Amino acid sequence: RKEMTAACTPRRRIINLTSVLSLQEEINEQGHEVLREMLHNHSFVGCVNPQWALAQHQTKLYLLNTTKLSEELFYQILIYDFANFGVLRLSEPAPLFDLAMLALDSPESGWTEEDGPKEGLAEYIVEFLKKKAEMLADYFSLEIDEEGNLIGLPLLIDNYVPPLEGLPIFILRLATEVNWDEEKECFESLSKECAMFYSIRKQYISEESTLSGQQSEVPGSIPNSWKWTVEHIVYKALRSHILPPKHFTEDGNILQLANLPDLYKVFERC
C-alpha cells in the first residue's frame, strides 16, 4: 500500500510523520478485503446518474454509490500519497476573496446577518489561508500566491479535474471546517474536505460537464463527458487505489441488486 500512486510524480518523498502513518493504519484496520476484491475485478455496466452506477462482479449485479466511493478513493490517495502530488495549474489565478464571496452568497454556506458582513468574512478567509499557504503547498500541492490567488490544485489521478463549480464552497470550508490546531486532526479533516471537493457530486455535474483533463479519443470531437470520466478514470482507479471500509457493506453505498443465475431462471419461465 505504501507504493500506491494514482498520479505520476517525478520522485517520491518518504513521509514518516506519526500522524500520517496513524491515518494510514486506520484505513488498513477499517478495510474490507472482500469489497476490495469485488472492486478490483468488477465489470463496469454503466452510470445511472452522477451519484449511482451499476457494476457486475462474477454472477452478481451491484449498485454502487459513485459519490461515496470516489470520496473515499480521493481521501485514501491523499493519505497514502501525502506530500507526493503533482499540481493542476489553473488556467488563470482565482482570487480567494472572490471565491469566498461566491460561497457566502450560496445558501449552502449557511451565512446569516449575525455572522457579520460577507466582505469582512471573505477578507478573513483570504488572510487565514495565506498564512497556511506554505503547508498547503508542501503537503497538498494546493498553491496560493502572495496576492491571495489560488493558482494550483493537487493532481490526485492523472487526467482528472475536480468539478470546479464546487471550488468556492471548498475554499470556505478549508477556513471553517478544518481542525487547524492538532496535526493528525488537521491532516485528516483537510484531506476529507479535499476528497469531498474532488468527489463526483450530482449538484455540480450536468450532462455537459467534463471532468477530464483530456479530449476524447476521436479527433475533432467534444470533450469527454462526465460519464466517460466516471467509467474510464474514476472506476479504473477504484480497481487498484481503494481499500473500501467495512461500513460500506452496511450503509447502502454498495448494494447487491441481483444474482444473475437467479434472473436467468426467471427469464426461462417467461
Rank of each mutant, 00 (worst) to 15 (best):
L69Q: 00
H57C: 08
V87R: 10
E193T: 08
K184A: 08
S212N: 09
E113Q: 11
Y160N: 02
K246I: 09
T9W: 06
N41Y: 10
E134C: 09
F197L: 11
K184V: 07
A237F: 06
L99V: 11
K118D: 04
A103D: 01
L61P: 04
T5F: 04
N224H: 15
E188F: 08
D251V: 05
V218R: 12
N49H: 04
A83L: 03
I200C: 06
C194M: 14
E108F: 07
D138Q: 04
L96F: 00
I14T: 13
M101R: 13
T9S: 07
G86Y: 08
R12F: 14
L260G: 10
R12V: 14
G166Y: 03
G152Y: 03
F248P: 01
M135S: 03
M196E: 12
Y198I: 00
Q56F: 06
L164I: 08
H57G: 05
T67Y: 03
K2V: 13
K68I: 09
G120I: 14
P219S: 10
L238G: 01
S221H: 09
Q76C: 01
E217T: 12
D262V: 06
N28Y: 13
H232D: 03
V234F: 04
I200K: 02
P223N: 14
V45H: 09
S221G: 15
R11E: 10
L172K: 10
E114P: 14
R11N: 08
I14Q: 07
L136T: 03
Q203G: 13
T9F: 13
S212Q: 15
E183W: 02
L164D: 03
V266M: 14
C270R: 15
M101Y: 15
L136D: 01
L167W: 03
W52V: 12
E92R: 06
R13A: 05
R1T: 15
T66H: 00
T18Y: 07
H32S: 12
F187Q: 02
V234W: 00
A122E: 01
R1H: 14
Q214S: 10
L21H: 08
K227S: 05
L21Y: 06
A237I: 03
P162N: 02
P93L: 04
M101I: 12
A122G: 08
T210Q: 07
L63V: 04
T112Y: 07
I27P: 00
S191D: 01
R13M: 05
L156P: 00
L129W: 04
E165Y: 04
R201C: 01
L90I: 12
I15D: 04
G31D: 13
G116I: 06
G110I: 13
G46F: 09
F97K: 08
L153F: 04
C270N: 15
L63T: 00
H32W: 07
Q56H: 15
G166Q: 03
P10W: 07
S221L: 14
T66A: 02
P163S: 10
E268S: 07
N84W: 02
E250M: 06
C194F: 12
L260S: 12
Q24G: 04
L17T: 04
P117D: 15
P162C: 02
S216P: 14
L96M: 07
R269Q: 08
G148E: 09
R1N: 14
E146T: 08
K184Q: 15
P50H: 14
P117M: 09
L136S: 03
H57T: 06
L172E: 04
K192S: 06
K118E: 04
A94F: 15
D115N: 08
L35S: 14
Q256W: 05
S225I: 06
N84E: 04
G213N: 13
G213H: 12
L61R: 03
Y235E: 00
S221W: 09
S206A: 11
S225G: 15
E113M: 10
N149E: 08
A175Q: 05
H232L: 02
T249G: 15
P117W: 07
L35V: 07
L155M: 11
P163W: 06
V161Y: 07
G31W: 04
L155T: 13
Y75N: 03
P162L: 01
L167M: 11
S206R: 14
E188Y: 13
S225H: 13
C8S: 10
S225N: 14
S216N: 08
P245Q: 04
E127K: 07
G213L: 11
A175S: 07
Q214E: 14
Q256G: 07
T112V: 14
V48W: 09
L17C: 05
K131R: 10
E37W: 06
L129E: 01
F140H: 02
Y204Q: 03
R201F: 01
M4V: 09
G86A: 05
W226D: 00
L63S: 02
F128E: 07
A6H: 05
T229M: 11
A100W: 00
P244Q: 01
K227T: 06
V48H: 03
E71M: 06
K184T: 07
A122Y: 02
G120V: 11
A7F: 06
L104R: 02
P95G: 15
E185Q: 12
I15C: 14
V48D: 01
E127W: 08
D105T: 11
N41Q: 14
E37Y: 05
E182S: 12
E108G: 10
G148T: 05
L260Y: 08
E183R: 02
F97L: 14
E146V: 08
F187S: 00
K130M: 10
Y62P: 01
T249Q: 15
L39H: 02
A94D: 05
L167S: 02
F187K: 01
I242A: 03
S109Q: 11
